[in-house]
Each structure stands twice: as structure tokens, then as C-alpha cells.
Amino acid sequence: MQSEDEQVVDSSKAETTKTCTQTPEVDDWANFRDDDIMQQQSAIQAVEADKIPFVGDKEPLSSLAAEYKSGNPIILEKIKVLTEQYAAVRRTRGDGNCFFRSFMFAYLEHILESQDRAEVDRITASVEYCRKTLLSLGYAEFTFEDFFALFLEQLESVLSGPEASISHEELVERSRDQSVSDYVVMFFRFITSGEIRNRSEFYEPFIQGLTNTSVEQFCKSSVEPMGEESDHVHITAISDALGVAIRIVYLDRSCDDKGSVTVNHHDFSPVARDPTNANINNNSNNSQPIKPFINLLYRPGHYDILYPNN
């Protein structure tokens, strides 16, 4: 099960932090270095990688039910409810990047299928705004420009222009190729960090509630490093920064007092923003909440992609 896999990865992370402390009881500690630990960690990750690619294949929801066959009845009941609205799931690897990876694939797949040029133009303007934000925050351009360029390249490739768009198989393949997939994930991490730091007064209370660290420290330790898991702060920030609505469907063991089961979801609706300036238009009455085209399934500790019934 996914959660067990994640525990393996997590315990290896804990190991890394522990290595900094030298225990006098271990005689041959001098020969046992952080490099060894890091190698061991990447070996564990390689084993994980064999089990599931960065982005899996589309599977019917019944495969989800099969996972809980002898498990929690509430979860099974909820999966039944889910099938009324959703048809399929696409799993992502539980490597701490699953939210960003799911978002990446769901977004690019949507553009590939909808060929929505207006949306591409809109997000390109948002990306440009994010670039300026990072520069104004003091980030050196050469540290992030490669990640931006790679995302824009993917965006262009899924839209038919003078050249035909890439095929769906090609998109899946690229999402599984570390040199593309990890760069796009990192691009999102830069975007998220820039958004949070740029509106630090807004995000500060949420961050205080999560970790009791400063906004800057949070971005440095929990947003920018690869493999750091995402929380509602990250999701709110990327949704606002890129102007993309995201629906998160919760699959957990919660139920109401009477024991009846409903599946909760939460829509992250981006704040209305004029991409040419930083002012956020809070009283925009004309902007109706849009139905998100990105649907993610959240199980405690992990995100996968959901596909609605058509």
C-alpha cells in the first residue's frame, strides 16, 4: 500500500538528518559518511521507482477499490460514492513531489486535449509575472531560468501550432523522464515559493499554524527542496500564482455522526489578478468560481490524478 511505501522513504529521510550526529559508541564511524547514507537513500528510491513510475497509467476506479479489498469499510463505501462522479485514476509516485507531479500532468494533458490557446496565453502571462516576482525577490535569474524554459517548452509542445502537438503517449513518456519531469516539478516549486514570499503577510498565519517558522525559512526548507511534501499552503499558492483552479477530493476514513458517508472536496479557486500588476482584485463580483479542470485525489500523505465521468 502507498502509505507503507512512503514510510520507507520517510525513514530514510530521518536517517539523513541523524547522520550529522556522531555517536562515540560506533567505532568505525569515520568510515561511514553522509555520502554513504545518501547513496543508500537513492538506492531505496530506485527500488521505489521500479514499483511505480513518476506518473502511472490511467486505471479504472475499481483498481482503487481493489487496494482496500480487505481494508476499511468507510473507504470502500466512499470509493463507491466516487464512481458516481469519477471514472478513472492515474497514480503518481509517492516521492514527496506527488502533488506537483499530478498537477503537471493534469494541466498539460488538459491543454493537449482541449487545445485551449487562450488558456495557454493566459498562463504564459502569469509565468512571466512570476519570473518578475522572483527577480524582485532577489533570485538570480540563472538559477531558475532553465526550469522556466523547460516548462514553457512543454506547454508549447502540447499545443498544435505551425507544428503538430506531441502525442498523448509522448506526454506520458516525458512525464516519466526525470530530466523533464523533475525540472517541471522544480519550476512549480520556484513559482510556489515566489508567490508565498511575495504575499508573505497573507501566508504567514497559515505557515505559523503549520510549522512555526518564518515565511522565508518555510520556503527554503519546505517548498524549494525537491521531495518536500505539499500542503494546503503550497496548493493555494500555486493556484493563485498560475491562476489555475484545483479540486482536491478527499478519500479518508472520516464520516459524520450518523455514520453516513459523503466524499468531501475542496476547490482552490485562484484570486482574480491582473497579471500586469501585483494588485489582487478582492472585490471582483463578476468573476464566478470556475469549475476546476484539475481534479486530484487526496489520501492522507498522497495525491493522485482523478478523471471525471463524461
Partner: peptide, 9 residues
Amino acid sequence: KNAWSPAWT
């Protein structure tokens, strides 16, 4: 180690 990000040089 684990807090590395490409923002560092």
C-alpha cells in the same frame, strides 16, 4: 543534504 534546492549556487 535534504534542504538543497537549485536556488543555491
